[in-house]
Design a protein around this nucleic acid. Structure first.
Lengths: 212, 212
DNA sequence: GTTATATGTAGTATTAGTTCGATTATTCGG
DNA sequence: CCGAATAATCGAACTAATACTACATATAAC
């Protein structure tokens, strides 16, 4: 009997994963955590075979999480489950020691395969990520690099909200930051993308988001 | 037999909702959509009783979605399902004509109640949102009239520049007006169109400029 | 293993933009 | 033609957002 810890702040996502696991031919007990503190606490109190971890989980949010987890249970398998575009972060997390990286929009079948593969002790990556890792071996970068991929995690968060028309003050509220901090991110985003207003931001996002 | 359309770009969320629906004592067919274009297409080809809609869905992304939906099926029930803090967006969507607003971290029981309530033709809001709505008067709206035609000549001039990303001060310069004057027009444009930011303005223009 | 660059975070000072009320045209039905 | 609605315009007093600076930590490069 395997123990699987599902860590995501969205009830519905935990429910979905739990349901998927129940359809696998693997006897497993599922434990849930809705924030990173809880993950740590559970890892300290019981053995876990597989951790399915949302990278956006409250209290976590960066690849340091992997270290914090391995400190408690060095042998736990970690499957990162992310809402972000995979290529933007997968490599980072895999290098930090994750066993797999899966985006939330993956088809059901792929989610199942990922869980089984990682639970089996193997690494899991989607075909797209594998391809990208191969490209990184080649020293020459493509001239038409996607400028969105130069944004940091925080910058992407802010960018996403900006493209929804959320104003700076409200973004600050939502992310629990100062207005000036959000404004700094906004400035950096605009600099990196070579733009100067929201309309251009929308164009950039439209232009590049489909081709990732 | 009810038809429920579940619209979310994350497979796992669709799966979770579908699973929840299957546990309800309501016979229902579930249809899934992973982006907003698909939602629109499905609404044009089949009758839907309930639409469970992620506000973050690719291609959608703001409260103009509600108009686009009602344009196709005026009587469909719309339950907004969001990852953001409820209070920050709920009111906008409810005023835009949604039937319910639910955050993704709501407990399973609340999700069930929300689905049943909205499917039943009643409005659903969490206690917190209900409280907040009591403070606001629900102004009557004309959802299907082309709001662009209510703009004056000067307002249209300003609107066109705004949709190009020109800033208020620059517009004032170009039209030989005071900044406050342009700002006044901008405010009136936003009022007349029932929007509150440039992103929504772009959506409105896109939505109505082809159908004049 | 030290230097350089990137990232996450804010504070102060300043600029950009809004609100509200008011004034002056303009248009339009009776 | 005349008042009522609609449109165009602006100023004073705000509020929102940015520029510039800074600093701590992290990661990469040499």
């Amino acid at each position: 009997m395997k123990t699987i810890l599902v860590a995501d702040d969205h009830t519905i996502v935990r429910l979905g994963i739990t349901h998927i696991i129940s359809t696998l031919p693997i006897p497993a007990t599922v434990v849930e955590a809705e924030n990173f503190d809880r993950v740590i606490h559970l890892l300290e109190t019981q053995d876990v075979d597989l951790l399915v971890l949302d990278i956006n989980i409250p209290g976590g949010n960066n690849s340091q999480m992997i270290d914090a987890i391995r400190l408690r249970q060095p042998s736990v398998r970690i499957l990162i489950f992310s809402g972000y575009d995979e290529q933007l972060f997968a490599i980072n997390y895999m290098q930090a020691g994750a066993d797999g990286y899966l985006v939330k929009y993956s088809p059901e079948e792929e989610i199942k395969i990922a869980i089984r593969t990682v639970l089996n002790g193997e690494k899991y990556m989607s075909a797209a990520t594998r391809q990208q890792m191969l490209n990184m071996l080649n020293t020459h970068r493509e001239p038409f690099a996607n400028p969105l991929s130069t944004l940091s995690a925080r910058e992407i968060e802010v960018m996403n909200l900006l493209t929804k028309g959320v104003q700076v003050a409200r973004i600050a509220e939502m992310l629990h930051l100062q207005i000036t901090t959000v404004s700094t991110y906004k400035t950096r985003i605009f600099e990196k993308l070579g733009i100067s207003n929201i309309v251009e931001l929308l164009e950039k996002v439209k232009m590049y988001s489909t081709s990732i």
